[in-house]
Design a protein around this nucleic acid. Structure first.
Lengths: 140, 140
DNA sequence: TTAACTGCAAAGGGTTTGCAAGACG
DNA sequence: CGTCTTGCAAACCCTTTGCAGTTAA
């Protein structure tokens, strides 16, 4: 029977990735699940603290790295700032970064994705993953 | 009268960016000028040493940062590795990263560029700069 | 001459790791 | 219970910085 509550889904996600389910990992993954934005590791740590449990910063880094390696979480590496994280459950998307506010907007462009595949193919490659970031300012 | 030797062009480039021309900066910029690949700062330092002159690592970092801020040099920020550098004199291009060998291949796609502009516009933005990286493996 | 630049060595910031104690399965 | 995980603190790596001496213009 399929899991039905958010918590069950979280546990399942962690377990399916081959890791033991611990309170710390649950708390960390939930932070990303709930996040509207794209927090970095210290920020995830801070939010995880806000729950009942005490999670160390080391465990936060370790867990984020593990989950990212398992593909359950995605690293967002921006120019000149610490790595941010997001869950991988949303469909694939890329990012617009507002240079003034730092806000990050997600977008999806199947046309660009297709052209990327073509470009890669022309060079004898196939894409494993890609990063597309548009550093923008609000149009006047 | 326009500069005619490679060395004169290098000096001109540095001077035009508003910086004094020093032997260190000349050596550092020349390393990037000559590079076929995309070296990081310690590698640029190592190559600059290979010339006559002794350049410190601190100066290498400082110079690369200055030249990047002036737009003469471009930072290449890849996933999980130190920042690499390239001169900005080549026309704009994006990068394919070979995950096996670490090799970086440059490519150009006006179609993708145009689609990017459209996407940004749809979200009320205009692009200041962008990064597109295709992490690939050789097609079998 | 004098403001800009360099080298050195020490500091910094983000991230990782060794180890002993604790918890999941 | 055995193994995986955690917390702590120390270590790490890449990069930046303060300062005294040097150099381009």
């Amino acid at each position: 029977m399929a899991p039905n509550t958010a918590d069950q889904i979280i546990d399942e996600t962690i377990r399916n990735s081959g890791l033991r389910v611990t309170r710390q990992r649950r708390a960390i993954y939930r932070v990303l699940s709930d996040a509207e934005d794209h927090p970095d590791a210290p920020e995830v740590h801070k939010r995880a603290q806000a729950s009942d449990l005490k999670v160390s910063l080391a465990t936060t880094y370790r867990t984020l790295a593990e989950l990212a390696d398992k593909g359950v979480v995605t690293r967002l590496t921006l120019e000149g700032e610490p790595t941010r994280f997001e869950t991988s459950d949303a469909p694939h998307h890329d990012h617009i970064i507002d240079l003034e506010s730092g806000e990050v907007v997600e977008f999806l462009s199947p046309e660009i994705e297709e052209l990327q595949r073509q470009v890669a193919r022309q060079h004898g490659y196939e894409i494993v993953f890609h990063r597309l970031q548009l550093y923008c300012r609000k149009k006047t």
